[in-house]
């Protein structure tokens, strides 16, 4: 499983996304540039230029027509995937930390940062998946966080709910049409920030991870914690693997936050856990700093990780990965 190293970013990676077919990979970093890559060989397809601040987040619609990015320059920008042309820009009073298209591509959510005088929000825009279309200027609704700000957010199946992960470790469920709060759970340790949320392919459940060193799977309807993965390092990212029942977790403590060298060893690895049995089953080394983002190929044939070290590593799974199974999994259900 020799990885392909993508060199093109000069600063730490913030998010990676595959498109629906898995042939393209999009990456954002603190260096103001958005990159598109061929996932099969790591060749750079192109860049999307225009942001004037660090980039925090990227997503691509399910038809690979529109790319959306969010930045510390307080804007969301919409791009033509193929030409790299900027189609739309929305401005906010604060940085945009997370963007995500709904499963049908017709809605866009964005998490905006909380800062002196401005509360954190989630804004929702209707999107016309058409390069010629005039996109609306104003959000259809805004969710405002008076208590703990949201750090991440995602759409459930059928756009029923917006699920948010918060700075204080809570996970909340909002009505996807009105933005009304429905349910709230303290999924992670109190005041330990939730750092990632990724939906399962059918968006009926999702994985979250936190600085509390745990990752959890919750269902979108009840927000019931179904699975817990315990690690020994603060987590930045968690992903689910289609085809195999695994999860991949990434994180690691910054060198400056570690008091002894022994603690630092072996922390910059992608960790594989069995999704159902919650056991750790393997690790993949490579990065020289914490893993900030992990994305899994939609067909489950590989994954990519982006590090604080400025590198993206693309892995293609080999036969032993697909052959791996617990005894009980081999038995006839």
């Amino acid at each position: 499983m020799r990885p392909i190293l993508l060199q093109g970013h000069e600063r730490s990676l913030t998010q990676i996304k595959y498109n629906k077919d898995g042939d393209l990979l999009f990456s954002t970093a603190k260096d103001h540039v958005v990159c598109a890559w061929y996932s099969v060989n790591g060749e750079r397809v192109g860049t999307y230029n225009g942001h004037i601040g660090a980039l925090w987040t990227v997503d691509v619609d399910p038809t690979t027509t529109l790319l959306v990015t969010g930045s510390a320059d307080n804007t969301i920008r919409l791009w033509d995937v193929r030409t790299g042309k900027q189609l739309k820009m929305w401005e906010f009073p604060t940085a945009v930390k997370r963007v995500e298209f709904s499963e049908d591509g017709t809605l866009l959510l964005a998490v905006t940062e909380q800062r002196m005088g401005h509360l954190g929000t989630v804004v929702v825009f209707p999107i016309t998946v058409d390069l010629e279309a005039e996109q609306v200027d104003a959000p259809s609704f805004t969710i405002t966080f008076r208590e703990s700000k949201a750090t991440v957010a995602a759409w459930s199946y059928l756009n029923k709910y917006i699920i948010t992960g918060h700075e204080d470790g809570r996970v909340s469920q909002y009505d996807g049409k009105t933005g009304e709060l429905i349910k709230d759970v303290q999924a992670h340790e109190l005041d330990m920030q939730i750092t990632d949320i990724q939906m399962a392919p059918d968006r009926t459940y999702f994985i979250t991870c936190s600085k509390d060193k745990n990752a959890k799977i919750l269902d979108v309807n009840e927000l019931k914690v179904l699975k817990t993965y315990v690690t020994d390092t603060p987590l930045n990212t968690a992903a689910l693997t289609p085809k195999k029942d695994f999860v991949i977790l990434g994180g690691g403590q910054e060198a400056r936050d570690v008091t002894t060298t022994s603690q630092r060893q072996g922390k910059f690895e992608a960790r594989f856990y069995h999704k159902i049995f919650e056991d750790e089953i393997g690790r993949v080394k490579g990065h020289f700093g914490p893993l900030n983002t992990i994305a899994v190929h939609p067909q489950g044939v590989g994954y990519a990780s982006g590090g604080e070290d400025g590198y993206v590593r693309v892995h293609h799974f080999d036969k032993p990965y697909f052959d791996f199974a617990y005894e009980v999994e081999k038995m006839k259900g």
């Binding site: 159902i276 617990y326 009980v328």
Partner: peptide
């Protein structure tokens, strides 16, 4: 494990 697998499925 059998129980976890059955519950999940």
């Amino acid at each position: 494990r059998k129980r976890q697998l059955d519950e999940w499925r």
